[in-house]
Simulated assay, not measured.
Amino acid sequence: MAKVLAINISKEKGQPKQAIGKGYFEVNCGLNGDAHAGDWHRQVSLLGTESIDKIRRMGFDNLETGSFAENITTEGIMLFELPVGTKLKVGETLLEVTQIGKECHLGCAIREKTGDCVMPREGIFAKVITPGWIKPEDEIERLN
Rank of each mutant, 00 (worst) to 15 (best):
A37P: 10
G33C: 08
Q18V: 14
V84K: 12
L46W: 06
K11C: 05
Q18E: 15
K13F: 01
T98W: 03
I77D: 02
K11N: 11
K87N: 08
K13G: 00
G30M: 08
L31T: 12
Q15E: 12
I7T: 12
T98V: 11
I100C: 10
K102F: 05
I52K: 05
V44T: 06
F60K: 15
N32E: 10
G23I: 04
I52G: 07
T49G: 09
L95C: 04
S51I: 06
H36S: 07
L47D: 00
A69T: 12
V84W: 01
T73Y: 08
A19L: 04
G33V: 11
G14C: 13
G59F: 10
R56T: 14
W40L: 04
E92I: 01
H41V: 15
I7S: 00
G85I: 07
T49Y: 13
A19V: 13
T86V: 03
H105R: 01
K87F: 13
T93A: 11
E12C: 00
P83G: 13
P83Y: 01
I55S: 05
V90T: 05
R56K: 15
Y24Q: 08
G76K: 11
E92N: 09
G38L: 01
I20D: 13
D39A: 13
L63N: 06
G23F: 06
F60D: 05
D61W: 08
V90Y: 02
E70F: 05
D61R: 10
G76A: 07
E26T: 10
T74A: 07
I55F: 03
S10Q: 06
L95T: 06
E96G: 09
Y24E: 13
Q18G: 01
L94H: 00
E75T: 01
R42F: 04
N8T: 15
I9M: 03
K102H: 12
T73P: 04
G48C: 03
A37S: 15
C108F: 03
T98Q: 06
N32Y: 10
A6G: 08
L46F: 13
G107C: 04
K87W: 00
L47Y: 10
G14K: 09
G38S: 04
R56P: 01
T74D: 02
G48D: 02
V27Q: 09
T93R: 09
G33Q: 14
C29R: 04
D39L: 00
G23S: 10
D34N: 08
K89A: 15
C108M: 09
I9H: 02
D34I: 11
L88G: 11
A6D: 13
M78D: 14
V27F: 06
G48Q: 02
Q43Y: 07
E75V: 02
E81P: 01
T93V: 13
E70G: 03
R42D: 03
Q43L: 08
G91C: 12
M78N: 08
K102C: 07
R42G: 07
S67E: 11
